[in-house]
Amino acid sequence: MRKYEITDKHTCSDIGVELVADSLEELYIAGAEGLFFVICGSSTNAGTKRLKITLESDDHEQLLIDWLSELIYYFDTNGYVGTDYSLRITNTGRHLQLEADIDVREFNVENETAAHEIKAVTYYKLAIEELNGQFTCHVVFDL
């Protein structure tokens, strides 16, 4: 189970997502889905390419920021929008490692209308919490 909900209760200038999932991996995927919903709304278009991403961070919050920032980078440079995700998080002993395979489609600037340009993912009150096997987090995007 995973879901995201768009929110602006934390700041009136920007937009965030409230994430709920029953695993960390699903929480990160919910974050990605929320991010692309904020950028270009919902779409049923299938992926046409596959991306492989590997990231390392010291804590889960930083890893989430790194993950979403990586997706912003691919959108900004190649117009890639994630459509399907396979994601693993492991503790290497030194770092937390995220390995992801992402199906992406190319955003078509001529035919599609994007809603928001996300400048960056913020640390604003960012905290991943676990309660009774459910993970929650809110993430605020700077627009």
Binding site: D58, S69, V121, Y123
Partner: peptide, 17 residues
């Protein structure tokens, strides 16, 4: 634009680390 946004993202990470 994205250039500055990325600079800020990069260095916030480094400074936090």
């Amino acid at each position: 634009r994205g250039f500055g946004h990325q600079v800020a993202t990069d260095y916030l990470r480094i400074f936090n680390q």
